[in-house]
Amino acid sequence: MSEIIQFVGENINFIYLMVLMIFVGIELISHVPSVLHTPLMSGANAIHGVVLIGAIIVLGKAGNDDYLSLILGFLGVVVGTLNVVGGFVVTDRMLEMFKKKPKAPGSKS
């Protein structure tokens, strides 16, 4: 129990931030037309790719001869980047289709 209180005490600013962010997240999503649910899910998916920064930090800290950490860290950065880049590109492709179309009937195929 004391450890939990210690945890809260040490991280109080982060906990404040976290609680406020939860509300921001709820507020942002609550009134979105269902048309945009898929792109939004995909966009949020890209944003949690921010975990990549953690992988960069951990790889940067790895010892020069700590090969296991270097390998795992390398893998971490690769998959993290995949999440970020893939996520944003896929979202952009989805949203590209929502752009205003000047041309009237007649389809490309």
Binding site: M18, V24, G25, I29, I47, H48, V50, V51, G54
Partner: peptide, 30 residues
């Protein structure tokens, strides 16, 4: 998103924390 936020706590990294929590809560609502 929550897993990314854990990284934010670990490294006291604000952008990881904010991004992670944001997706965590937005994702839950979605």
């Amino acid at each position: 998103g929550v897993a990314a936020a854990c990284g934010g706590f670990l490294y006291h990294n604000n952008v990881m924390l904010m991004g992670g929590v944001l997706v965590g809560s937005a994702g839950t609502i979605l």
